[in-house]
Design a protein around this nucleic acid. Structure first.
Length: 415
RNA sequence: CGGGGCGUAGCGUAACGGCUAACGCACUUGGUUUGGGACCAAGGGACUCCGGGUUCGAAUCCCGGCGCCCCGACCA
């Protein structure tokens, strides 16, 4: 992609109506645009990042047997009334001109349970799990923290269906593993803790995945020995101790909830009378679990965790492009060479953002740092004089030089 | 939804109740620049959030609404 054609613009002005670091950097870098409180447009750069995050999530959900579907965001009032959740505060409702009401999905149990019931009747159909990545709507009283808490946001929600608790437990454990693989791949695993939390209406405890950041809105208590944590909401119930090892010396931290998993048990299958026939021809109630993770929140969390005073430092796995090729000056020999490098990188299917704009070196460097692509390749009269280019990783201080000869291979090694 | 703050060009800001609403960034044109947010010159762009009121006169004061931010409650 030629940067001169890229839709969106960087700016040095900090947007006045954003105080969170993630929104400030994402807006300044041209990743997102605010539409209203808690609602953002993803511009080309931001869309690329979020797609990469979504694809990582997809791969890990597929790996544990999840099957991707897409359910409607516009939902039936009657199904919400069945579970008694129609009048819950977070539900956004829309009304037609002839006064018919619909709900906008903030979660999908009310859709997925009737759906699953329609197609699964025999124990032979189980277990199975369905997931989607979709836009969720929640009428938060107050949107805040940039893309960490919006009224409209993207969410991966997976639902699993089982004939007995053993099967549910097994899948539940598998999902924990999948979640940590995702956190690892997007570069926030070290700061992410499996956290015991309230199970709400459904079960005694649920598990959250809490990522340490001062931008977080939750308070958790960490056990260093077990690398797990306890949410403040149940710390009293657990007598201020680690549920794994009993350690009472827990550390208080601020964190953001980047995932959560729930054993729903029969809360929804009972409501919708979702039963299966076992091998003896007897009816039993299906057991369910749900597993949530928000790609947009993940994106915001990565920015909160990975930045410096000049801008974002994307992990390679989610950077909008793999390489930022920066051409300095408008000398014909230099621009011709830059074009050649651009073409050969593209030929090798390497994603490259090519700064071909007629801007000063300072502007290009500042923009490059702000956008935060992991690998920067600079070509200028100076480097060309030595038949090389400068290569710098966004996360490192020092640059190195690579000769034009075999450059593509060299870059391939680095990405 | 309670408390506080703020709404002026795309963005960031200025303007005593008084002249054509000013400046920087961004944008357009021409020229000079090109290793860390360059420079010169010439331009375009505003019903000062909306509605009412006070006044000879309102961006400025008052009332109402809407929007945005922060704290709280609620929540992935």
């Amino acid at each position: 992609m030629k940067q001169s054609k890229l839709f969106g613009k960087t700016t040095k002005e900090i947007p006045k109506d954003e105080t969170s670091l993630n929104a400030q950097y994402l807006i300044r870098g041209g990743f997102i645009d605010k539409s209203m409180a808690g609602v953002y447009t993803y511009l080309p750069l931001g869309k690329r990042v979020i797609s990469k995050i979504e694809n990582i999530i997809r791969e890990e959900m597929d790996a544990i047997g999840g099957q991707e579907i897409l359910m409607p965001a516009l939902q039936k009032k009657e199904d919400w009334q069945i579970t008694g959740r129609w009048d819950i505060d977070v539900m956004m409702k829309v009304k037609t001109y002839f006064d018919k009401e619909y709900g906008l999905g903030w979660t999908h149990e009310e859709v997925v349970t009737p759906l699953a019931k329609k197609y699964a009747r025999s124990y032979k159909d189980f277990p199975f799990s369905l997931y989607q990545i979709q836009t969720k709507f929640r009428s938060e009283k107050r949107a805040k923290s940039g893309i960490l808490r919006g009224r409209e946001f993207s969410m991966k929600d997976l639902y699993s269906f089982h004939i007995n608790e053993k099967g549910l437990d097994k899948f539940y454990e598998q999902s924990k593993g999948a979640y940590f693989k995702i956190f690892d791949r997007v570069g926030i695993k070290d700061k992410t803790y499996l956290t015991f939390a309230s199970g709400g209406d459904f079960s005694k405890y649920s598990h959250e995945f809490q990522t340490l950041t001062s931008a977080g809105e939750d308070t958790i208590y960490i056990c260093d020995k077990c690398h797990i944590a306890v949410n403040q909401e149940i710390i009293e119930d657990l007598k201020n101790s680690c549920p794994e090892c009993g350690n009472k010396n827990l550390k208080e931290e601020k964190a953001i909830e980047t995932g959560n998993i729930f054993k729903l048990m029969t809360r929804f299958s009972e409501a919708f009378n979702f039963k299966f026939l076992d091998e003896h021809g007897k009816e039993n109630v299906v057991l369910m679990g749900c597993y949530g993770m928000g790609p947009s929140r993940l994106m915001g969390t990565i920015v909160e965790l990975s930045n410096d005073e000049n801008g974002i430092i994307w992990p390679k796995s989610v950077a909008p492009y793999q390489v930022h090729l920066v051409c300095l000056g408008d000398d014909k020999t230099v621009t011709n060479e830059a074009e050649k490098i651009y073409d050969s990188l593209q030929k090798e299917k390497i994603e490259v953002l090519y700064d071909d704009r007629n801007e000063s070196a300072g502007v290009k460097f500042k923009d490059s740092d702000l956008i935060g692509i992991s690998l920067r390749v600079v070509i200028s009269q100076r480097t060309l004089g030595n038949d090389n280019v400068e290569i710098k990783e966004r996360s490192k201080k020092e640059a190195e030089f690579a000769s034009l000869d075999g450059l593509v291979e060299y870059i391939k090694d680095k990405i």
